[in-house]
Design a protein around this nucleic acid. Structure first.
Lengths: 208, 208, 208, 208
DNA sequence: CATGAATGAGCATTCATTCAT
DNA sequence: AATGAATGAATGCTCATTCAT
């Protein structure tokens, strides 16, 4: 009857894959990667374990797809906001603000992303966080902003890679450390971080 | 037979526990937390799995003891060096330098520590990195240094908790991100980081 | 719509059943009975697994139909050739020759037949090769030839069932044993076998 | 206490392995190879499935060990009896007799052997019965006897490999075909088989 | 007629743990 | 103090089968 049979089929399958991935996010958030068995994921997704095997080649296939999805979503969130800024300074502030805001927007997604990145392994048993990832668009974008600011003369001279790494570390630390999360609220943390980064990047008269 | 049965026992037992923990460190470093079964640990420690169960009440007990040991060792390494510095500025620089140096000193220990912190869970299924840890002496020491510098007037006015968190994040990021590890060597990273923190903490004329 | 719905249905259905059975033959030949899952068979038949369940009540039903088909094909091949011979001697020689030739004609069919006979089971868990099969027309035909030869005086006196069994065993052995297949070619094997059987069945003067 | 600690340990383990293999024999005999899951074997062996995995690397390791054991036992049974005969004729008769007798001695063992040989596969998915087996000592011994008889002049001229194959086929057929088993008893079958083989191998005056 | 979607049952295997020695 | 032996529970995964479409 339908004139779009393939699309309909594809749509159902895609909906199930989405449903399963959401179950996986909930599982990773609640009990962590090491405990996230297929049956735990299936329980939270409201499907049978066999259905996961039906829609994904194997467990690592599921985790890979989920990782991509989460990285993409996070990257999109940040990039969309950065794209609306014009000067390098605005972009940099927006980048930091958005990076932190994303964590607050959907903590479970962020936690799930952390759990996969820190726990999943390549077939060679190399941890993801030890793999150099050329596709880390976020890190690349941040370096791009810093270089642009230096090129236009907005920013002072500093080591781009190290500052980028420092910013990423500071942003990630907020969710990785329960202590700071409880002592400082997200907004304040963002403002203070932006101020500190500004101190480092600001152009002062008579300084190279 | 021995006239010091408890002590001798305790000594041998302690040696075995040490041996098992070293096996666990090697295992965590090589194959990661999720794959680190008791039998994998036993293999690397050169003992039977049953012996691990004999010396530790259960697997999480082993991981807890190992985590404490690794945190203590790391803390000692850093604190010992910081203790030799006199001014807050010297202490702060030394803290950053030592924190990074420790990662290079014994990468396997550092990786093992990361693996436990990011993967192990309390009985309530709360991830360690989400537990507020009053015993995080390192974080406490860093804040102490920053406050001391502000009190003596060496440092400018800044948000102590945020800067401490930023420094911790930047230090941790070096080992967590393969990209930066390959682009910048440890020494350069340390020097640049110190320079940036100095920019933030330095007292400028006419600024509150 | 059609005025011969059953027949048309029957025809298409029969074609599909044939297609599935050919897939089953290929599967049995390539990966053996134990590995021949419905999905493996479906893959080789170019249909979905569900279609197999639609055309056969269950897996054993498929195997039963296939077994019959293969036995029938094998019997026809042999019987057609034997029917053209006139004397018992000619029939016997032709029987042996044709039995061996069939193996060479379509090895995959013969392998598939062996795989089913030796691996499939009745619902009572009785192996096919332990089931007394009244419908084993080939065995029956062979015994018929031997008895006919004895009746006409062409053949000497011997134990019909044992010789029949011996011939069947010798014929089957050729494909079941890789050693003999590689040492002796099919034609030579057949010639020698015929010569030996002739020695046993030949009528000698003065011997009962 | 014991002065043979290793041997005692080894003895217990060996006893368990034996027990498990006997369970496997019973399972193969009762429900066939394709249905012989570890849990079915464990049930019949009176142990847990995990214990099978503890004593054997994996399922194929168990089957390989069992196959070797069964082949060895069968070979020993036959060879021991053949060794007591002196002339080639006596050896040949004894070989046939013993080969058949072994089937009657312990039918379950013989069935189990058949089930493995016809169902198990190498890692390359090649069926055992299609693998040329240099270690088939029984087949080798039979050919040896035939050649010896020809060398001493006891036997006539015939194709050794084909007759050996024929004998093996005839012997194997007795258990593989329910029809003959029910029609002719083992002893008669043996006697008739020996008589037929004698006709083929006997030396006649004036015949090459 | 044909299939994609879905599942409960079962698979081989590994797990942390206990226990007799 | 130390281990081999043993197991119940859980793992990821495949199976034959059903069903809505």
């Amino acid at each position: 009857m339908s004139n779009h049979p393939e699309e309909k089929t594809s749509f159902i399958a895609e909906a199930r894959r989405e449903q399963i991935m959401n179950g996986a996010i909930a599982t990773l958030d609640e009990i962590g990667y090491a405990q996230s068995s297929l049956s735990q994921i299936a329980k939270r997704a409201g499907v049978s374990t066999a259905l996961i095997s039906y829609h994904f080649v194997d467990k690592s296939d599921l985790m890979n797809h989920l990782l991509m999805k989460l990285m993409e979503r996070s990257a999109t969130y940040i990039m969309d906001r950065v794209a609306q800024a014009t000067t390098a300074r605005q972009k940099l502030d927006t980048f930091i603000e958005a990076s932190l805001a994303y964590q607050g927007t959907n903590p479970a997604h962020y936690i799930a992303l952390l759990e996969i990145v820190f726990h999943a392994r390549t077939p060679d048993n190399i941890s993801y966080y030890r793999v150099e990832d050329d596709e880390d668009v976020i890190q690349h974008e941040l370096q791009q902003i810093l270089r642009e600011g230096q090129a236009t003369g907005e920013f002072s001279s500093f080591h781009v890679e190290v500052l980028a790494s420092m910013i990423q570390g500071a942003v990630g630390e907020y969710m990785s450390s329960a202590a700071i999360t409880r002592q400082v609220d997200l907004e304040t943390y963002g403002q203070e971080l932006i101020r500190m980064v500004r101190t480092i990047t600001i152009r002062t008269e008579g300084i190279s």
